[in-house]
Every structure is written in structure tokens, then in C-alpha cells.
Design a protein around this nucleic acid. Structure first.
Lengths: 325, 325
DNA sequence: TAAAAATGTGTAATCGGTTACACATCAGGA
DNA sequence: TCCTGATGTGTAACCGATTACACATTTTTA
């Protein structure tokens, strides 16, 4: 591999000049420029990023910390981040935290050792992030700190779900609430409640983790004891799909006997039968926005908004009835 | 951030000694060791990976090049790779190639500029990989070169699918073959054919990309013209699920009127209704094995097998009939 | 036309590690 | 007792870039 010194020698200039040419800062005369370009071509020179990073203390790497890429919400997010990174000359390091503070800490450490240019973190991270001067953007789940963040307007979205179920004639609704730890889960609950309050609807609230099997089991049990339930709000699509499975097992017709609305808009919801009506987060847009915000920060450009909220969108599919709309 | 020099000074030894201590090579006396440990603790010293990489020309980064993380096959693969990497002190750089040779080339270049320790590549990559001395493992799709590889035994798997359809009484089968470019697609076809040949079964072969919507459309049209088809083999789960959707739209009962078998074993197949019978690749194991093989190579350990094949497994769910088994 | 500003370039230190090599000390075997 | 090999340590070059600073030349400006 040719180095900048080889190029300099061949072009009969100093390394400083080559470096200036490469980074397009400082002055470089026309003649030198030509010579350098020629030398670079002939030597097939590619600048060494590691050396550059060591010197400038800033790499072209972006760290992406998410709970688990296998969770269907995250691939699209990761993809969006990667796309934007790619377009801006950055590369993405993928970190699965499993929401484990130890792993989070480990990755934060590793990433800073790698001099990453910035970090996007979509995980609860209990105030772990603080010490560093690396640009960070919080995604989807805002930690308590006041990091720049990109989130979905959960309350608004859940309200849409609530209104839809009400309009479609649900009278007794089971809410599969998400884990207490997640702020988003509480927001969704409160948004939903706001939509249905005063509508004379009977509500049941069950807390369920965002795992299909568990949600299925909980719903199955609950529906067995409360057969008159005719509407379910899953605080995540995964729970909603679990609920859908439970209805199927119980022989309850969806949407005729029970209507279901999820939240998230993961691809999966489009492939179930019946396909899932849901409040779709604009996942790609979330990732895109976060990456954009991060790169802005990295490059020291001005940031208009530090906290960006993206409105989700109701996607009416087959687990709710159409006749009312 | 403290450097190795700070540690050396504080421990009253030379940087060489500290470095030896850090890397556990060369001799370090007991006294020096104690002093160094103390200094490291007091200074909160963390070695700078970038400097280390520059010096040794080898980082702790592993590049993972896949077509698209959004494709449901890859998150689990990526997760497996990341898990193994994590356990061995490596970190994963995620690259989506979209099967685009330009992007592949770009990433290969970037990764080598980053001095990645190794690369796992799951993409067609037309002989692009060759020049380098970076350890590489081909995953899932073997390029023509003789890179170490980890693949699913596609022929065997497709044969299982064929046998199952035959045993379950299918007489006229539609094969949704994958893209010509993919070797695996041809292997699956040939495996399937081997299983059904001589069984007096009528076959139709349609080429379909691994995209649900397209597969759905193609199947819909084909079934409209060939209503007597009673079995479908999707060369990927995604196509099979598309086919399932098409059957649903046509009012064909699955598995009573048409039976469907997919290939891949993506999570999605478990959540459709009816859930998809499929030949499941051991996706996690594929990723695990590839990562393991790569790290072995990186660390210069001996490699028994350069080409590892993993047998897939029939997962009988609800798109095939049980009574025959 | 002289001073000031802009342009062009090179030298050498620096980023933070690794490691070849030289050298010192010490134990054990002949 | 002398030699040999193991043990322990430091000096300084090196990995491949960036960049502050000094200096030379050319162009503007007054």
C-alpha cells in the first residue's frame, strides 16, 4: 500500500502539500496538483483512515447501539441510519445491547476508543451517557438526559388508535400496555386513554412485554375470562400480533368479533392474516432523521431543533372493520 | 485521556514495559507489574485502539457485508455474527450492499482502509474479492473463488421439501424458483426436482425474485390460469408467503386445497396464518459458524474445514397437511 | 513603488501505540 | 569460576497521516 510519502516523493512535493491536496485545505499550486494527481493514480494510492483518525482524533465511524437487531423494529432503523451514513461517507458499527447496562457501557467504551465520530443510541441507557464529548443522538427511547433526540409522538399515535377503535364500535377494550420502564409505553397508554375517555367504554389494562408469545398467552388467558371484550390495543405490533394469534386459537373472528390495533408499523403486520391495523411509526424516517441530526452535529453545522418528534400514521388494514369509516 | 506514556511515567518504567504488560508478551517483572497496574488504575487508562491498529495494522473490527438488513433473513445472521464477535472482543461494521457491485467495492475498500481484522461477506460479489490479504469468509452465498465458506446444504433441504409435498399428496406443483444469479437458487431447484422425479407429478416452474409482492402477483396470475395446482414450493419463505397471500385472495384453502412449503425459516413464517411449513436454515448457526471460522483465521489458528455446510431442517407447520405423515 | 496581503511549499513535531535491538542482571551447569 | 541462557528493561524507530510554523514568492493596494 502506497503512503502519502510515496506520493509526495513521486510528485516531487512534500507530504504537507499532498495532505493539503487531499483535504482541500490550504493552498496547492496547479502544477503540484497535477503532479500529485498523477502520482496518486500511478501508485493507486488510498489514504489510510486509521492514521488519519489517530491524527485528527475523529474517524468516519458511527456507532449504532440498539437493543437487538432481531427485534423487527430495528432492521429498518439500522438500514436508514446506514443509508444516510453511506451517503455522507460514514460507516456504521452495529451494537446490540440487549438493554443490558453492562453491554451498553462496554460498547460506549469501545466506540470511544475507536474515536467514532458520533453515536446513535436507541436504548434505555440509564444515564450512562454523560462523560463524553462525542456527539450523540438518542433515538426512539429518550434517556433522561437532554441529548438531542428523535422520537415518535407516541401519545398522538395512541390517540389515533383509540379514536379508531371507538369509531369502529368497540365497547370493551383490552389494552396490552408495554413495559413500565419504557417512557414510550406510558405515553401510548395515556394517549389511548385520552381518546376513549368519556366514551363509556369499559377498559382492561394488562402489562405485557413486547414479545409475541407472552402477549399471546396473556391475551388468551384474559379473553377466556372476559369473553365480552371486542377490542384490543397492542402497545406494540408484536403484542398485537400475539393477541391476534390468541383470538385465532379461541376461534374469535377478527375483525367481526374482536378488533385489534397495534403500534409500530413493522413489516410483519402486513403479512399476518388478517393483516394488522396499526399506528405506523415512520421507522425509516426516524433513522434517517437521527442520522442526519448526528452528522450535522459531527460536522458542527447548526441544529435548529434538538428534539425532533415525528408523527406516526394510522394504517388501517384488516383487523378493524371498515363499515364504520 | 491518559496515554501509555503517562502510565509509564507514573509507574517509573518505560513505555515498552507497559506495552509488554498490556499485551502479555515479553517479560515483565513482578514489581513493574504492580506499579503498572496501580498506575493504570489511578489514571483510568484505556489503551487507544486506533493507535494500536495503526501500529499493528490490524484492528478489532469485523466487516459484515450483506445485501440488506431489512431482508428478514439477515438480522438473525447479523446478530449471530455480532454475538460471537462480542465474545471475542471484536466489533462489527455493518454494510448493506444491495447486491450492487459498486457498493460492494466501496465497502471492501473502506473496510481495508480501516484495517479490519476480517470480513464476512454474504453477497454475490462477482469475483471482486481477491486482491487482499484480509481474512474473508463467504456466507450463505459462495462466490466462485475458493474463499472459506459457510453455507446451507440447499440441495438437501429442497429435497426434503419435495419429498414432503409428494408424501402429502400433491400432484401438480408450482415451483417458485429464485433468481438465476444465485447459485443457491439453482441448487434448491435441482434438489427439489430430484425428490419429485419419477413420482408422476406435474411441474410448473416460474422464476420469481425474493420479494413478497412480486411472488404474490406471479402466483396469483399463475394459479388463475392453472387452477388444478395443489402444491407450491417457494424457493424462499418470502416467495412462499407471497404465494400464501395469493391463495388467500383466490379463496383457495391452505392446506386443504393447496399446500405450500417455503425455504429459509425466517421468523415471519411462524406468524402467518396458517403458519408456514418450511425448510429452515439454521440461520443463527450459520452466522455463528462463519464468525467463528473468521476469528480462527484472524488469530491464525488452524482450520480443519474450509467449507462448512450446514444441513437445514424441515419445519412442518400449517401450510401442509398432517394426515399423511 | 513600497508595504501588505495572498499564495504556495517544506520541515518537523505529533497522534498513541508496538517492537527490534541493545544491554544489564542473575541462576544454573560444566 | 566462567559461560550460557533466561529474565527484565529502556531507547528509539516506526505505523501513516495532519498541521503549526517558517519562509519564499507573487499579487494587491495605497
Amino acid at each position: 500500500m502506497a503512503t502519502i510519502h510515496d506520493v509526495a516523493k513521486r510528485a516531487n512535493v512534500s507530504v504537507a502539500t499532498v495532505s493539503r491536496y487531499l483535504n482541500q485545505n490550504g493552498y496547492v499550486g496547479e502544477k503540484s496538483k497535477q503532479a500529485i494527481e498523477r502520482a496518486i493514480r500511478e501508485l493507486n494510492f488510498v489514504p489510510n483512515k486509521v492514521a488519519r483518525t489517530l491524527s485528527t482524533k475523529k474517524s468516519n465511524l458511527i456507532g449504532l447501539i440498539i437493543p437487538d437487531i432481531v427485534n423487527p423494529f430495528f432492521p429498518e432503523l439500522a438500514r436508514a441510519v446506514e443509508d444516510i451514513a453511506y451517503r455522507n461517507g460514514y460507516t456504521v458499527i452495529l451494537c446490540n445491547s440487549d438493554e443490558d447496562p453492562e453491554k451498553e457501557k462496554h460498547y460506549l467504551k469501545v466506540l470511544s476508543q475507536e474515536y467514532v465520530a458520533g453515536i446513535i443510541i436507541a436504548t434505555t441507557c440509564e444515564g450512562i451517557v454523560q462523560d463524553t464529548d462525542i456527539p450523540i443522538v438518542a433515538l426512539d427511547r429518550v434517556p433522561k438526559t437532554d441529548l438531542p433526540s428523535v422520537t415518535t409522538n407516541n401519545k398522538y399515535g395512541a390517540e389515533l388508535a383509540g379514536r379508531l377503535l371507538v369509531e369502529c364500535g368497540a365497547n370493551e377494550i383490552l389494552i396490552l400496555k408495554g413495559p413500565k420502564l419504557l417512557a414510550s409505553s406510558e405515553e401510548r397508554l395515556s394517549g389511548f386513554l385520552r381518546a376513549v375517555e368519556g366514551k363509556n367504554i369499559q377498559l382492561h389494562i394488562v402489562e405485557s412485554p413486547y414479545e409475541m408469545r407472552v402477549a399471546e398467552k396473556l391475551t388468551y388467558e384474559f379473553l377466556t375470562n372476559h369473553p365480552s371484550i371486542d377490542g384490543i390495543f397492542g402497545s406494540s405490533d408484536v403484542s398485537a400480533i400475539g393477541a391476534l394469534k390468541a383470538c385465532e386459537r379461541l376461534g374469535k373472528k377478527v375483525p367481526q368479533e374482536i378488533q385489534i390495533v397495534g403500534f409500530d408499523g413493522i413489516q410483519l403486520g402486513d403479512y399476518t392474516s388478517p393483516s394488522l391495523t396499526t399506528v405506523a411509526q415512520k421507522i425509516y424516517q426516524l433513522g434517517e432523521t437521527a442520522a442526519d441530526l448526528l452528522i450535522r452535529q459531527i460536522e458542527g453545522r447548526t441544529i435548529e431543533e434538538r428534539h425532533i418528534e415525528i408523527k406516526p400514521e394510522l394504517v388501517v388494514r384488516e383487523t378493524t372493520r371498515k363499515e364504520f369509516l
